[in-house]
């Protein structure tokens, strides 16, 4: 177990992921490949190793995922477009300063067409709705500078209908509060500048109670800890300016203990197999906790903070001060 972040190992781990094309699992998970690229790229940026993945190659890969029939991006060439993969594509292109490559008009139309009468968004033409998709829509429109075309009222009113008595938000109206859905909802509200919809003291309390005695965070009451909540919970707390309400050193220790000290990468909890999803969210959490030597993460967009600031999209979130190495 290591008590420092093994940056070189993680960079190597992320770089190697692209070399696994002989593995069955690489192809079996193609339906979320573009999300994997986004997680890897974001983790690299936060660890100040953006150069570890070839920018041009990455951009070309993203463009190869374009689904011309739908006018948006799929997770892998020949896969159907979906709002999840579309946001990842936009995030990757934005990170590489290559948003000019995409047909913004068509993407914006794709996104806007997914909004339902209730204000929620579907993920694709088949109509599954989820506040995750609503966030994807809001974030994508914001990154593309097209928020003014969104029906804000309806969007916010759907978010408000998902709020529960415990301050949290669920997947759809009526659903139980879940830390991942709390993040998509508060982040969407932050982008829409409507945090007044949030009951901050109650939600801050609910989020603080996600920390378990071992330092890790769970996603719902009476559930197990998991490194991915380092992002869902912490980013929500950063947006509400409540990061001081948990024990940051205990959480830092927990995230570090979930690293794979030989192969690199971070797992859901100590001793488990590392994957790119938990690697990204573990690193994201450490950045918000002020871990030394990392770049700032913007908790609203889950992208490098400097980039979001440059794009003029920074909102009023607050991370813990960066500690000296």
């Amino acid at each position: 177990m290591s008590d420092t972040l093994l940056i070189d190992l993680h960079v190597q781990y992320i770089r190697n992921l692209g070399n696994n094309k002989d593995d069955l699992s690489y192809h079996m998970t193609a339906h979320r490949l573009i999300n994997g690229v986004y997680w890897g790229l974001t983790a690299l940026c936060i660890m100040k190793h953006k150069e570890a993945l070839d920018a041009q190659e990455t951009i070309e890969y993203v463009m190869s995922c374009w689904d011309d029939e739908a006018g948006a991006f799929g997770p892998h060439p020949r896969h159907d477009a979906h709002i999840l993969s579309t946001l990842s594509a936009i995030q990757i292109l934005a990170t590489h300063d290559a948003l000019a490559r995409l047909n913004a008009t068509r993407v914006v139309d794709f996104v806007l067409n997914l909004q339902q009468p209730s204000g929620v968004f579907a993920g694709d033409a088949f109509g599954e709705t989820d506040t995750r998709f609503l966030y994807c829509a809001v974030s994508a429109l914001s990154l593309l500078g097209a928020l003014d075309r969104l029906d804000r009222e309806r969007t916010v009113s759907y978010l408000a209908s998902c709020r529960n008595f415990d301050g949290g938000f669920g997947r759809v109206a009526g659903a139980e509060s879940h830390a991942a859905q709390v993040w998509v909802c508060t982040a969407a509200l932050a982008i829409l500048d409507r945090l007044d919809v949030v009951d901050v003291p109650t939600l801050g309390w609910w989020l603080a109670e996600r920390q378990l005695p071992n330092g890790g965070l769970n996603g719902r009451p009476e559930k197990l800890e998991d490194v991915c909540y380092s992002h869902w919970v912490l980013s929500s707390m950063a947006i509400l300016n409540k990061l001081t309400w948990i024990d940051s050193s205990a959480l830092t220790r927990f995230i570090l203990s979930a690293q794979d000290p030989e192969g690199g990468g971070i797992a859901d909890r100590p001793g488990d197999m590392a994957d790119i999803f938990h690697t990204c969210f573990g690193v994201a959490g450490l950045s918000l906790l002020g871990y030394p030597g990392l770049d700032d993460l913007d908790p609203v967009y889950c992208m490098p903070a400097s980039l979001i600031e440059r794009m003029g999209l920074k909102t009023g979130w607050k991370a813990l001060p960066r500690r000296e190495g």
Binding site: D23, L24, D260, R269, D272, H278
Partner: peptide
Amino acid sequence: MHGVRRARETREVRTARRERERAMLS
């Protein structure tokens, strides 16, 4: 990979696994 225990894969084991998986992959 939620809840999958970490197992160290040596080069030999990986080669053997890929060999096994080759037919499945194709």
